[in-house]
Simulated assay, not measured.
Amino acid sequence: MQPVRLGLVGIGKIAVDQHLPAIAANAGFRLAATASRHGQVEGVDAYAHIADMIAVARLDAISLCTPPAGRHALALTAIEAGLHVMLEKPPAVTLSQVEALVGAARTAGVTLFATWHSREAAGVAPARAWLLDKRVEAVRIHWREDIRRWHPGQEWILGPGGFGVFDPGINALSIASEILPHQLVVESATMDVPQGRASPIAATLTMRCGLAEVRGEFDFLQTGPQDWSIEVDTDAGTLRLGMGGALLQLPGEAERPADDQEYPRLYERFANLIARREIDVDMRPLQLVADAFLIAERRVTDPFIF
């Protein structure tokens, strides 16, 4: 079988750090072209715009690594050209945009894959399996990182549609919605928005999983040790996920070792979906963020400068 001829759109930090190595390691894909205003890949045909790439390059699929704002139009361009599409997280800036893409992909008969890379972390699947027959009593989510370290100069992330602290925070919500046995429901929220910015730099969420309270704390101004952890209190003890889901500790057991195979697993999944022409789009993490934006108490804080 011939490899899928892939076009990569948006050659930024996430593409360089994660997508390119995963594509190179998967024999089912061949990187045939890129489209980006700011980056190129040596030895690969490069275009400034996705429409130019699609018009000239012979492609089967597109992987979109651009910021979420504008991604709907890019994905729709690819779908209408008959190409399979893989979306970085979050898949778009609104729920209606994602729903429209799902409808377009069904009409075109192509694969649409909205990825949640943190769900592919080593500890997530075994955590979900362990929790299946447990009673959840409380959940604590801590997602605290340094915006200047992980998103240097990315002004868009605090702008309209940039998600702010929920750009990383949605990773936590993608894990929680995957491993917990009941649908998460947002009850209240606060958002700290720097003066002159549109998206929060810190936030808290109070949610429910059945009768259990789920408390989420998200902070983009964390200095020192970074913290991406989830603790789940159950009738059988406390489950702990650390390092964004890579590390898992079950009650009475030693911490399980991590691996770094999130993006290789995503591309393996994309290949399988393409082979079956299936759609895989779970909007639950985006729904939780949208609910938070709807009901949050917004507090204006000091201006933020990168």
Rank of each mutant, 00 (worst) to 15 (best):
A236Y: 02
A81Y: 00
F163Q: 08
D227H: 13
M191H: 12
L180M: 07
R215Q: 12
L101G: 12
I54S: 04
F220K: 00
L273N: 04
L248K: 02
G43Q: 11
Q18L: 09
I201D: 00
Q222G: 04
R298T: 15
T223I: 10
E213S: 07
G7Y: 03
L158H: 13
E255G: 10
S199W: 01
L266G: 04
V289L: 08
D219C: 14
L241Y: 02
V193K: 06
Q195S: 11
G39N: 09
E155W: 06
A33L: 15
A55F: 07
D146H: 14
P194L: 08
L288S: 07
L184T: 03
N26H: 13
Q287S: 07
A254V: 07
A48P: 01
A78F: 06
F270W: 06
V232C: 05
A57H: 05
A176F: 01
A292H: 10
P251K: 14
D233L: 13
T301A: 06
D60R: 05
Q287C: 13
T206S: 11
I295P: 11
R208E: 04
A73M: 06
G28L: 09
R269N: 03
V16N: 11
V110P: 13
V4G: 04
A114I: 03
I274E: 02
P160I: 00
G216M: 10
R284E: 13
D291S: 14
L76R: 12
E137T: 05
P168L: 07
R215K: 14
V232I: 15
Y47A: 11
E262M: 15
P152A: 02
A176N: 01
F270S: 01
A46T: 14
A57K: 04
G245C: 03
Y47S: 09
L248G: 06
R58K: 14
E297Q: 15
D282V: 14
D259C: 09
E88G: 14
Y267L: 12
A92I: 08
I54V: 15
L112N: 06
I201W: 07
E155D: 13
P168G: 01
A61D: 02
M191F: 05
G242C: 01
H72S: 08
A189Y: 06
L74Q: 11
I147E: 00
D17Q: 11
A32F: 13
A108M: 08
M86T: 00
M207Y: 12
D192M: 13
V56Q: 12
I62K: 00
E120M: 03
V44Q: 07
W228Y: 15
A27V: 06
